[in-house]
Design a protein around this nucleic acid. Structure first.
Length: 507
RNA sequence: GCCCCCAUAGUCUAGCGGCCCAGGACGUCACCCUUUCAAGGUGAAGAUCGCGGGUUCGAAUCCCGCUGGGGGUACCA
């Protein structure tokens, strides 16, 4: 059997999960559960929480990330909630490991204590910038004798542990998507491994953990490329084999630069709240950087597991296109998700708006589901997000119509008196009509239009407005069928009454 | 400033030396369908393949330079 492919997604619990992070998680998952398993090797997707920055930690963020990843449709084999052979999966619970690793490097001479204060560091940087030099640590403490260093530490001098980067030679990063990237060691920094508070930096923690957890492939964002050589040097210093690396292209904002609030939603949680379907979001995100053949656009989760290969991921950054995401979402709502399923997905939004009973959200057999179903069937083709459902469905699910301007009842080329007469005729005819028979209803109404000397559309529009309160709706006869005879009658009567007030009194 | 990455229509992309005076999708526009709005169908416009040099019989495809965009430059990840 080919060697196991073990990948990890390692979010920082500092807030909501960015869509870029969501895509990174997706590609990792697709590599392990898709490509690797297809090739007959074990593929494991590991979730690891990188909570070593105590200052930026946000309470509840970790759970939020787990929740949204599950909603997204990913499953992980090891993680903080499910455990696994390399537990714990939360870095704040693994600090002894990092301390130990740092001490090892200290002993071997690959690392040293740095007693410089943040103030001195800042001053050094400022002076360098003023002299137009590259800012960076000046290795001030690198020369301190081992005994002296130890003594100061014993005396309680606060310090960090820094990596003693080789001063000469070069480090070659093999990026699976870009080939070789060569760095001169001379301009790599002596990065901090262990902070004053005893927590590791990302650099130390990720190397120690990836090795400890037997991670075979690292798929992460492009913003990590510059630190890759540093990490490689760390693996070398420990005497460990480094995982293979691939840096995923950045997701850019429409105007260029980072995707931020200014452009719209940026987090997975927001897209969820706005009524995007996880499968639509997954489909869209998968295509942001990956393509099968340039032709196929629609991919289910199963399709992606079957088709995804890392080799077909592009190295060039992609702009996030909200309009295209909307198109995917609308497409899934209208053409892919089965009706009963869709009714269930729309239910929470309807419940929030008070259009269905809260109990209908969890209970597929709740009568409100059946009540909403025909309306959803009628409106789904104009629903781009689930959040639009309440507004679209309100005329069908509420008893009374929201108030509307009676002037809307009068067609552009008609008069209020003429419209009033037409609606009165419709109201008289209604009791004899079987709304469930759309074809028959249509035939009778068309005949009525003839009798009245009106064009069909000129008769239908006032009825539409009377029945829905709007000038836009699905086909009139399916609309009336779903609204039902009782409400149609009431709404028609209300419209007639409103219209009477508009008709000029006879002179 | 220094280091690094990227470069096909407004956007996502196909293309990995001849099948390409460049294919698909979103968006845009037009028409069809039609009782309105959508959805759907058909079609159109839109790319000197960022620019300039090479290599080659032949380059969007390979090489170099430039330009542009982006990332990094923290005791953040």
């Amino acid at each position: 059997m080919p060697p196991a492919v073990r990948v990890r997604f390692a979010p920082s619990p500092t807030g909501l999960l960015h869509v870029g992070g969501g895509r990174t998680a997706l590609f990792n998952w697709l590599l392990a559960h898709g490509q690797a398993r297809r090739a007959g090797s074990d593929g494991a997707f590991i979730l690891r929480i990188e909570d070593t920055d105590r200052a930026r930690l946000v309470e509840g963020a970790e759970q939020g990330i787990l929740d949204v990843l599950a909603w997204f449709g990913l499953t992980w084999d090891e993680g903080p909630d499910v455990g696994g052979p390399h537990a714990p999966y939360r870095q704040s619970e693994r600090t002894a490991l990092y301390r130990e690793a740092a001490e090892r490097l200290l002993a071997s001479g690959d690392a040293y204590r740095c007693f410089c204060s943040p103030e001195r560091l800042q001053a050094v940087r400022e002076a360098q910038v003023a002299r137009k030099e590259a800012p960076g640590y000046d290795r001030h403490c690198r020369g301190i004798e081992r005994d002296a260093s130890f003594a100061r530490a014993q005396a309680g001098d606060p310090y960090v542990i820094r990596f003693a980067m080789p001063r000469e030679g070069e480090t070659v990063v093999h990026d699976a998507l870009r080939g070789e990237i060569v760095y001169q060691n001379a301009n790599l920094e002596d990065l901090v491994l262990l902070k004053t508070d005893g927590f590791p930096t990302y650099h130390l923690a990720n190397v120690v953990d990836d090795h400890d957890m037997a991670v075979s492939h690292i798929l992460r964002g492009e913003e990590w490329i510059p630190t890759a050589p540093l990490h490689l040097r760390l693996y070398a210093a420990f005497g460990w084999e480094a995982p293979s690396l691939a840096h995923l292209p950045l997701i850019l904002a429409p105007g260029g630069g980072k995707l931020s609030k200014r452009h719209g939603s940026t987090s997975m949680e927001e897209f969820r709240a706005q009524g995007y379907l996880p499968e639509a979001l997954m489909n869209y995100l998968a295509l942001l950087g990956w393509s099968l053949d340039g032709e196929t656009e629609i991919f289910s989760k199963a399709d992606l597991l079957e088709k995804f290969t890392l080799e077909r991921v592009s190295p060039s950054p992609a702009t996030f296109d909200y309009a295209k995401l909307r198109w995917f979402n609308a497409h899934y709502i209208n053409h892919i998700v089965a009706l009963d399923d869709l009714v269930g997905r729309v239910a929470p939004f309807l419940a929030d708006a008070g259009l269905v009973d809260r109990a209908a959200v969890a209970d597929p057999s709740h009568p409100d589901r059946a009540r909403a179903r025909p309306a959803v069937a009628l409106l789904k083709d104009r629903m781009e997000t689930l959040a639009e459902a309440p507004d679209l469905l309100a005329p069908f699910l509420r008893d009374a119509l929201e108030s509307y301007d009676p002037a809307l009842l009068v067609p552009k080329k008609g008069s209020s008196a003429e419209t009033l007469a037409a609606l009165e005729a419709v109201a008289r005819m209604l009791p004899e009509v079987d709304l469930d028979d759309e074809a028959a209803t249509e035939a009778r109404f068309r005949a009525l239009a003839d009798e009245l000397g009106l064009k069909a559309g000129t008769l239908f529009m006032p009825i539409r407005v009377a029945v829905t309160g709007r000038t836009q709706s699905p086909g009139l006869f399916e609309t009336m069928r779903v609204v039902g005879a009782a409400r149609c009658t009431r709404r028609l009567d209300a419209a007639i009454e409103a219209l009477r007030a508009l008709v000029p009194a006879p002179a």
